[in-house]
Simulated assay, not measured.
Amino acid sequence: MDRQKIFFGPNLKFLRERRKLSQESLAESLGLSRSKLNALENGQTKAPQPEDYLTFSDFFKISVDSLLKVDLTRLGELQLRELEAGNDIYMKGSQIRVLAITVDSENRENVEYVPVRAKAGYRDGYADPEFIASLPRLTLPDLPAGHSFRMFPISGDSMLPVPDGSTVVGQYTEDWTSLKADTPCVLILRGEGDFVFKLVTLLDDRRLLLRSLNPLYEPYTVESGDVLEVWQFHSFQSREIPASETTMEQLLKMVLLLQREVTQMKIERSH
């Protein structure tokens, strides 16, 4: 699994200098030695203690997640103030993630297709314009204007009645906090994890709960830091239903019908 870059040291230095504090004055305020603070800022302490994370999180009023995972130097002053006010932007992809796109000859954004063979490469090159430009590009009718869309093949039966081998069209979600509970999404996960198509609910501790439509599969959670991109379900295409697309409302009706059938079978078996 790929190692995630940690920004703890550079963030400490950035936040200290932003408040116009010397190493001596900050160390004295926190009850630390200047040499320890200097080592933390410069990454010379390879394994900071949990208390260190909590100490700086409390002092700067920024979550441990953001201290570790977000390059604070890339944020604007307004974003930093939002962060210090407790509005954790780590879940807002628009503020810390850059989406690479391609456009056609008339400057209209393309819909890129990520084939199975390109999945591993996509996890490494999702923000690389050259890699994105190498993907197959399509134009789909009737997509809402002003949004980015991408197509992902899915496998397995965890999201039945969406069949195995379908292609899901997803709309790029910049702000993950805007997702309603059980929003169907394609998630691009860090490391060796596959793309997943699940019902997504954002939890209070910045984890994401992933649930399948197929009740045979147990729900599970992933850390926000392990999620690279979120693409909200728009439609799907399937070999089993040629050239068809379905809205989520139609899909949910199908699920309810299946649930009623299962309930009826249980009732019949009990008599």
Rank of each mutant, 00 (worst) to 15 (best):
P48C: 12
F59H: 15
D175F: 05
V116L: 13
P184I: 01
E223H: 15
I6G: 00
F56C: 03
E223C: 15
F236M: 04
P48G: 10
R74Y: 08
H147P: 03
Y53I: 06
Q250R: 05
E192C: 02
I101S: 04
I188P: 00
F197K: 02
S270T: 07
L135V: 01
N110Q: 14
D182S: 14
I188E: 01
A120L: 03
V262Y: 05
M1A: 14
R239N: 12
D205K: 10
I6L: 06
N87F: 12
M248P: 02
P242W: 03
Y217P: 00
G191A: 09
S212K: 08
V196K: 09
A27H: 09
L78H: 02
L187Y: 03
D205S: 09
K253H: 15
S270P: 00
R19L: 09
S94A: 15
G86N: 10
R190L: 07
F149W: 07
H147W: 06
A47V: 09
R19Y: 05
E130H: 07
F195K: 05
A100Y: 08
L12P: 01
E218A: 11
A133T: 08
Q259E: 15
T201C: 13
Q95D: 03
F197P: 07
K266G: 00
T183W: 02
G43P: 07
P50H: 11
R18A: 13
R239Y: 05
K119G: 05
K5N: 10
V200T: 13
S158D: 07
Y53G: 00
T221K: 12
R16N: 06
V103L: 11
T173N: 05
L72P: 00
A118S: 11
T102I: 06
S35E: 14
L12V: 08
L68S: 08
E106P: 02
N214M: 05
L72Y: 03
L257K: 11
I96E: 08
V111L: 11
D182G: 10
T102D: 11
L37G: 03
G165A: 11
R108V: 08
M151W: 02
Y113W: 08
I132A: 01
S63Q: 09
P141H: 07
E77P: 00
V227S: 05
P153W: 02
L252C: 02
M91P: 00
L209W: 12
Y113D: 04
G86F: 12
E223W: 15
L80C: 09
